[in-house]
Computed example of a mutant assay.
Amino acid sequence: MPVFYRGKLALLKTYGLSQLNYFTYLESPSHEAITRLENVIDWFMFSNDREYDPSKPTKITMSKKRSIRSIDHSGLNLWDLNARFRAQKAWMFEGFLHEVKNNRVVKVSFAQSWMDQLNQDKPNDFVRLCSSGWEKLTQPYDISREAVPKPAMEPDKRGRYLSSKCTSKG
């Protein structure tokens, strides 16, 4: 991976995505907001323009599927924001259930409120979002072949990574 991608990734994950991650503990971004964020991320990672112009399309040099792959598999290890936010909500609900199971609801600031909302079957939007995310992750589901990232390069018989298009036989 070129050095400038590593620098941009470090900046993006340290200053941008870490703040965004904190924000999503408090508020859930809409699908439109996530799309705008991804456009800004694409501009930051792939554009040479000094300023972001939402009306100007960014020429993306790497597909979304590839960019979320790990660096070992020729990706950038970027976050899939939709999946990350859903997983975060499920993780928060899992933590709540852990507190309920261990009878520590009164010791956690939000847990009693969530417990009351769920017992009255009147959860607010945030609790509903967290619980539905948790329910979706705990139910078995069929993973399509396209959802699982494939390595860009396959190892040869000796375990070395060579591009299948670049190898020659003979």
Rank of each mutant, 00 (worst) to 15 (best):
V3Y: 10
F4N: 05
F4P: 04
F4G: 01
Y5A: 06
Y5P: 04
R6G: 01
G7L: 02
K8C: 02
K8M: 06
A10L: 14
L11P: 00
L11C: 01
T14H: 08
Y15I: 02
G16S: 00
G16A: 05
G16H: 03
L17E: 04
Q19V: 09
N21R: 06
Y22L: 11
F23C: 11
Y25C: 08
L26F: 10
E27L: 15
S28K: 04
S30D: 09
E32A: 15
E32Y: 11
A33F: 01
A33H: 03
A33M: 14
I34F: 01
I34N: 03
I34Q: 03
R36W: 06
R36L: 09
L37P: 03
L37T: 01
D42A: 15
D42F: 09
W43M: 04
M45W: 14
S47H: 08
N48P: 01
D49V: 03
E51C: 09
E51K: 11
D53F: 05
T58Q: 14
K59T: 15
T61L: 13
T61H: 04
T61G: 07
S63A: 08
K64Q: 05
K65M: 01
R66L: 12
S67K: 08
I68T: 12
R69K: 15
S70Q: 06
I71S: 14
I71G: 08
H73N: 12
H73S: 09
H73Y: 05
L76S: 00
W79H: 10
W79F: 13
L81N: 02
A83I: 08
R84H: 11
R86C: 10
R86A: 09
Q88E: 07
K89I: 03
K89H: 11
K89P: 00
M92N: 04
M92Y: 06
F93S: 02
F93V: 06
F96N: 05
N102K: 04
N102L: 06
R104Q: 07
R104H: 04
V106D: 14
V106G: 01
V106E: 13
K107I: 04
V108P: 03
S109R: 07
S109D: 12
S109F: 08
F110E: 00
A111P: 00
Q112V: 00
Q112N: 12
L118R: 03
L118W: 04
Q120V: 05
K122W: 06
K122P: 00
F126Q: 01
F126T: 03
F126V: 06
V127F: 04
V127A: 14
C130H: 00
S131I: 08
S132R: 06
K136N: 13
T138N: 15
T138E: 07
T138F: 06
P140W: 10
I143R: 11
R145L: 08
R145D: 13
K150D: 05
M153Q: 13
M153F: 07
E154D: 09
E154T: 15
E154M: 13
E154R: 15
D156F: 10
D156V: 12
D156N: 15
K157W: 11
K157G: 08
G159A: 12
R160A: 08
Y161D: 02
L162G: 06
C166F: 06
S168G: 07
G170R: 14
G170N: 13
